[in-house]
Nucleic acid binder design. Structure first.
Lengths: 144, 144
DNA sequence: ATCGTTGCAAAATGTTTGCACAGGG
DNA sequence: CCCTGTGCAAACATTTTGCAACGAT
C-alpha cells in the first residue's frame, strides 16, 4: 500500500527533484491535521510544533503537492487559496457559507456524466472540476 | 422594458445611493464591451475612451453591480476576479483553459435539480453556484 | 561536485481604505 | 446643506521572486 509519503517521494523522484526535510515536514503537517487549511495555517502549525520552514517553502511545496495530485486547491467565493488533501477522499463538491465560511461537502454522481459529455462535445481535456454553491448555511440564514 | 441603466438606477434609488456620472460611465463600459473582463480592463477602457474614473471607484462600482444582480463575479482557477454581465444571459457554466485562459461556456440543465436537492437536504439557502471545468482546450492539449 | 533547495526580504499582484474635497439629493 | 461619492496614495493581504548560502544525490 502506498502512503502519502511514498507517493510524494515517487513523484519527486520522477521529476528529478529532491526529498528534503522541509518537504517531508510540510507533507506531515498537511496530512496530520486539518481538512481545509491555507498557507498561513500551515506556517502556524509548523511554528507551534517547533519545525522551521519558511513561508516561501510552504508555498513552493504546496504547488508540488497539488501537482502530484495529493492536494486540491480551492478558492471559495474569490477568497485566498485553501487546500484539502485528497488521500482516501472520493470526488466531492462544496457548499460555502458566505457568513461563517463553513464548508459543507456533498457528492453528486451525475456531475461525472455531465463533465464527460460537455468535455467530449468541445474536445476539451478536463484536469479538474469544481461545483460550488455559495449562500447561507442553516445557522446563518437571515429570517426575512 | 428595463434597460441595464434603468435597473441600476432603480437599485441605487432603493439603497438610497446616488446616481453619479462615474457610476453610469462604468455601467456603460461594462455593458458596451467584453464578455469577460477584469478591473484592469475597465480602467484601460475608460482611459482610452477619455473617461476619467479611478481604480478605487471601479472596484466600488463593480461591487454594486454584482450586488444589484447585473454582474457576476468569477475567479477561475485561483486567479484574480473577472466579471461578466448577466443581462439577457441564461444560467451557464464555464470551462477554463489553463494554458490560454480561453473560456468556453456551456449549459447543463441538470445542475438546477442537483442544486435544489442538495440545498434542501442541508437546509442551505443558495445564492450562487458555479460549475467550472479546468483543463486543456482543443487548441492547447498536449499531444502525449 | 553539481545543481536543486532554502530562507530572507523585497517585489509583485490585486484589492481595500483613510482622508480631504467635490457634488448629487 | 448634508452626507455620500470621488481620487489619490498608502495600506493591505497573499503570493512570487532574486540571491547567496546550503545540502541531497
Amino acid at each position: 500500500m502506498a502512503t502519502e509519503l511514498e507517493i510524494f517521494r515517487q513523484f519527486l523522484k520522477e521529476k528529478l527533484l529532491k526529498v528534503t526535510p522541509e518537504r517531508e515536514a510540510i507533507l506531515r503537517l498537511v496530512f496530520g491535521t486539518h481538512e481545509h487549511f491555507d498557507a498561513e495555517d500551515l506556517l502556524m502549525d509548523a511554528r507551534s510544533s517547533g519545525q522551521r520552514v519558511s513561508k516561501a517553502t510552504i508555498y513552493r511545496t504546496l504547488d508540488l503537492l497539488v501537482e502530484s495530485g495529493l492536494l486540491i486547491r480551492h478558492t471559495f467565493d474569490g477568497r485566498h487559496a485553501r487546500y484539502e488533501h485528497i488521500y482516501g477522499h472520493k470526488n466531492h463538491e462544496h457548499m460555502f457559507c458566505i457568513i461563517c465560511h463553513r464548508i459543507i461537502e456533498f457528492t453528486a454522481p451525475d456531475l461525472n456524466r455531465i463533465q464527460d459529455e460537455v468535455a467530449s462535445q468541445f474536445k476539451f481535456r478536463p484536469l479538474k472540476r469544481s461545483f460550488q454553491i455559495s449562500g447561507y448555511c442553516s445557522r446563518c440564514a437571515p429570517s426575512d
